[in-house]
Simulated assay, not measured.
Amino acid sequence: MIRQLLLGWRTTQRWRLTEGQRRAVYLWVLALAAASQLIGALVIAVAGAATPLWWPLAGGSICLAAWVLLWSQRLPWQWVDYGILGAASLIVAAQLALHDGPLKADTLFGCVFLLLAGFSILPLPQAVLYVLAVLSAVGVALLVHGGPYSLFWNLALAGLLTAHLSTFGRNISIERAETKAFESLANTDALTGLENRRAMLARVQASFTDDAGAAVLLIDIDRFKRINDHFGHDVGDRVLRDVAVRLGQVVGAGGHVARWGGEEFLVLVPGGRDVQVLASVLVQRVQAQPVGAGMTVTVSVGGAVRPEVGSLEDWLQLADARLYMAKENGRNRAELDRPDWLELAGGTVA
Score class of each variant (00 low, 15 high):
Asp340Gln: 09
Gly232Val: 06
Leu5Val: 13
Leu247Asp: 05
Phe208Cys: 04
Met295Cys: 07
Val68Thr: 13
Val269Lys: 00
Val301His: 12
Ala158Thr: 03
Pro56Gln: 14
Arg16Ser: 15
Asp222Met: 05
Ile221Val: 14
Ala279Glu: 05
Ser184Ile: 03
Leu247Gly: 05
Pro339Glu: 06
Ala34Gln: 07
Asp229Glu: 14
Arg10Lys: 09
Leu151Lys: 00
Gly236His: 02
Thr348Leu: 12
Ile84Met: 11
Leu342Ala: 15
Thr209Cys: 04
Ala127Ile: 01
Ala117Pro: 00
Ala319Phe: 07
Pro270Gln: 10
Ala133Lys: 01
Thr296His: 07
Val250Lys: 05
Ala186Pro: 12
Arg198Val: 11
Leu96Cys: 08
Asp242Glu: 10
Leu108Asn: 04
Thr192Tyr: 06
Ser120Phe: 02
Thr188Tyr: 02
Leu116Lys: 02
Gly255Pro: 11
Cys111His: 01
Trp9Met: 01
Leu53Pro: 11
Leu132Met: 11
Leu7Glu: 15
Gly310Met: 04
Leu7Tyr: 14
Asn329Pro: 04
Gly346Arg: 03
Thr192Leu: 02
Gly20Ser: 09
Gln73Val: 11
Leu75Cys: 13
Ser300Lys: 00
Val299Gln: 00
Leu57Lys: 06
Leu132Trp: 06
Ala47Ser: 13
Val283Lys: 00
Ser300Asp: 08
Leu342Lys: 13
Asp229Ser: 14
Leu129Thr: 03
Val46Phe: 10
Asp210Val: 02
Leu115Gln: 02
Val291His: 01
Gln249His: 11
Lys225Ser: 12
Ala206Ile: 05
Ala190Asp: 15
Leu108Thr: 02
Asp340Glu: 13
Val43Glu: 13
Arg3Phe: 15
Asp220Pro: 13
Val43Pro: 08
Cys63Asp: 15
Ala163Val: 00
Leu116Glu: 00
Arg285Leu: 04
Gly294His: 13
Ala88Phe: 07
Ser89Ala: 12
His145Val: 01
Met1Ile: 10
Gly101Cys: 13
Gly294Pro: 14
Ala253Val: 06
Gln249Pro: 04
Arg170Gly: 14
Met200Asp: 11
Pro339Ala: 05
Asp340Pro: 05
Asn154Pro: 01
Leu191Thr: 10
Glu343Val: 08
Ala41Tyr: 00
Leu122Ser: 01
Gln13Lys: 11
Asp274His: 08
Leu312Cys: 04
Arg3Ala: 15
Ala34His: 03
Pro52Ser: 07
